[in-house]
Amino acid sequence: MDPGPAVDVRGLNKYFGKKHVVRDLSLQVRRGEIFGFLGPNGSGKTTSIRLLCGLLTPDSGSGTCLGFDIARETAAIKREVGYMTQRFSLWEDLTIRENLEFVSRMYGMKNRSRAVSEALENLGLSSRQGQLAGTLSGGWKQRLSLASCMLHNPHLLLLDEPTAGVDPRARRDFWDHINELAGSGITVLVSTHYMDEAERCHRLAYIAYGRLLVSGTSEEVIGSQALAGYEVTGPDLPRYAALLRGLPFPVQVTAFGATLHVVGSDSTALNDLAQRMKKEDSHDWKPISPGLEDVFISLMEKAEEDIT
């Protein structure tokens, strides 16, 4: 029997006072997939995740999380979901071990002491288990939170920027672990600002001003925008960049070391320009395929225009 999608919500809306923070959010996350949730600061990612796990009640719209209604069956959702908050939310005045033990009690787990010891072992914190959680470094706090929200073997992980401030090695370990979990059938919804992490997700959604703008695999997301891109090299790049920004059609000009990336949604205009430039001046224009970051920045700028 097909258990249905892990997350399936339609038309969710959330207001804070007069502020419309989540607008008509519809989202499907399949079981066992890693789903990336991206968007600029203040776009409503955290709010959307809170709606999914029953921490906030939507003003309108409905849906299910692991088959449970997000408005009425929040108790069941809470048992099956592991939620890692964006801000460190474990108890700073409890030790590392006490935190994990408390969480294991809240989920009514059996063999608590063993589960906690195992988690500490995996984290590599066994020797520091008596240290107060508040005295950990930022990255270690993240890793502890992650361990704590996975303690009760949830079927769905909602991770709100889990790797913010975590070093590259730990980040890679974390993603390897997430992949393993997904392989064993656990669904992961993860919000992030890192492009390399976005690329490691099976599917993505991009949200701005509370509105979901695109979703799909990273190829689909890139394809949907039909951007053209060039890598420009040559003398006096800063002045050249200022010149390009003054063009009559919108382009994004970003400096990458000794090169400029020029990306635009009006591909015909940009291609023409590149042809002309190659002949006229000493700069070298090489076509490149735009990446996720280019797509997201372009989406964000478009959304800004729509709003204003």
């Binding site: 796990c53 809470k78 908050t85 801000r87 939310s89 108890w91």
Partner: peptide, 13 residues
């Protein structure tokens, strides 16, 4: 204030 309430609310307590 410390944000731990969010964690507590996310558990089945």
């Amino acid at each position: 204030e410390r944000g731990t309430f969010e964690n507590l609310l996310a558990t089945p307590a």
